[in-house]
Design a protein around this nucleic acid. Structure first.
Length: 450
DNA sequence: TTAGGGTTAG
């Protein structure tokens, strides 16, 4: 017969509405700990045990301090919960952690062995009879069935990102960085390329020609950039302002996760993911089927000679290049290998030019050379590249008519003229050779063919 | 108290 001190199976908790119970379970999902709209911090965990493995049981935890909320570290983590209140809401039965009377402790596979939790709420005291429960769960965790969670209908790869919809992403978290205004940014990757975006034609010339190179306000440190993959988009995901101290509490860096119920928007032609206050995450084992699919597709892609081409690009291109034999590279290849003085071939879009007006860039600058700056983009990065001197003439030809140059640049930028004009422009893919000279990317050996 | 949810357009 159970009493107030004994752990009960989750299934039995369903018939204990308005009672306090003790539970133990594997943590399958967690919300991102956040400030509630009341006075406390809140996190919602989904737990399972042997009695309740097909569904998941929600536990709502409220604490006065953010650091008192559980920080889950892995898909094998085990939580023991003392004196959580079973409540019913809208026909669903959940547990609520009461900050005055409840307590919890978190264990991983290792800390189950000596029952020494890696995290516990203030006042947690392990009851001696529960040692056996914890060890038993520790033994189970390697074989306990793991389900990816969430309906597959919500799952999108970065390749199929959609603006302003709610979706899930299975991705590897590469990095977390604090941004200027006290929110945090996650850098996530699934090996695919986000779709190319179009650009608002209503921007002023100045804004069109000075598009930002990345979502983050300041460039990342070089050692971080260099740790990112060079193929596939690294999506920037902003946290919500309720997610205080996000980066200090999130233990998912380097892990595959499923982020659930996130959204995204477009920031100057760059995809920007957004966490919602209702977003949550699941750690995924490396042998999760969706993770294996991502890795398999990526390995298949990079094994091909054309794996470094944007998956959204296809010939014919607006340009031809002299050096057919130079290797294809992504813009991230260029950014992460700055010490190598080579020429590579890239498939990119020209998303901006500076100066913006044809009358300015078809007039030689003081040195007598033509010179302009192109903002190039592929699914991995944006860079500024210079087109100048002989390379400029090679690119545009030796007709210096403003009308002709303007028409060529408009084609590069995806600006439709005349009757086809539209409120957005969609730059086409071009091929170009890029070399790095004295810290400057230069377009070379490339000719516009229209 | 707080959240609870696959939702916002009728």
């Amino acid at each position: 017969m159970s009493n107030r001190h004994s752990i009960i199976p989750i299934r039995d908790a369903l018939s204990r509405v308005n009672q306090n119970v003790n539970l133990i379970g594997f943590v399958r999902e967690s919300s991102f700990p956040r400030k509630s709209l009341g006075t406390d911090y809140v996190s919602i965990l989904k737990i399972v045990d042997e009695s309740y493995k097909d569904e998941e049981f929600s536990v709502h935890l409220f604490t006065e301090k953010l650091e008192h909320l559980p920080v889950v570290r892995s898909y094998k983590d085990i939580i023991i919960l003392y004196q959580v209140k079973i409540e019913e809401f809208n026909g669903r039965i959940d547990a609520v952690f009461k900050k005055k009377s409840s307590s919890y402790a978190l264990f991983d596979e290792q800390s189950c062995i000596d029952c020494n939790p890696y995290q516990a709420s203030p006042g947690f005291r392990l009851l001696r009879p529960d040692i056996g429960f914890i060890r038993r769960m520790g033994n189970l965790c390697a074989t306990f069935p793991f389900r990816g969670g969430g309906m597959d209908e919500y799952l999108l790869s970065l390749k199929h990102l959609k603006n302003k919809e709610y979706f899930d992403v299975v991705c590897k978290v590469l990095h977390v960085e604090k941004t200027a205004n006290n929110t945090w940014m996650l850098f996530v990757w699934d090996g695919t390329d986000t779709p190319p975006l179009s650009f608002d034609m209503h921007l002023q010339d100045d804004e069109q020609s000075r598009l930002p190179l990345h979502v983050e306000q300041f460039p990342l440190p070089m050692d971080i950039i260099c740790s990112f993959p060079c193929v596939g988009t690294v999506l920037r995901v902003m946290t919500n302002e309720a997610h205080e101290k996000f980066g200090l509490n999130f233990k998912g860096i380097g892990q595959w996760v499923r982020i659930r119920n996130m959204t995204c928007e477009v920031h100057f032609g760059l995809w920007k993911g957004l966490l919602l206050s209702s977003s949550r995450f699941r750690f995924l084992p490396n042998n999760d089927n969706t993770v294996l699919d991502c890795i398999r597709n990526f390995n298949f892609r990079v094994a091909e000679e054309e794996g470094r081409l944007p998956s959204w690009s296809s010939p014919p291109y607006l340009t031809v290049v002299d050096y057919e034999n130079v290797p294809f590279a992504t813009l991230m290849d260029l950014l992460t290998k700055p010490e190598v003085d080579v020429t590579v071939k890239c498939i990119v879009r020209v998303v901006a030019v500076f100066p913006p007006q044809a009358k300015d860039f078809c007039r030689p600058i003081e040195s007598g050379q033509y010179r302009m700056r192109l903002t190039l983009e592929d699914p991995t990065a944006r860079i500024h590249a210079t087109l100048s001197g002989d390379n400029w003439v090679k690119f545009f030809g030796d007709s210096f008519s403003i009308v002709i140059l303007k028409s060529k640049v408009n084609k590069l930028l995806g600006v439709l003229d005349g009757e086809d004009s539209s409120s957005v422009r969609n730059p086409p893919w071009i091929q170009c050779c890029i070399s790095l000279n004295s810290g400057e990317y230069r377009i070379c050996g490339t000719s516009f063919v229209g």
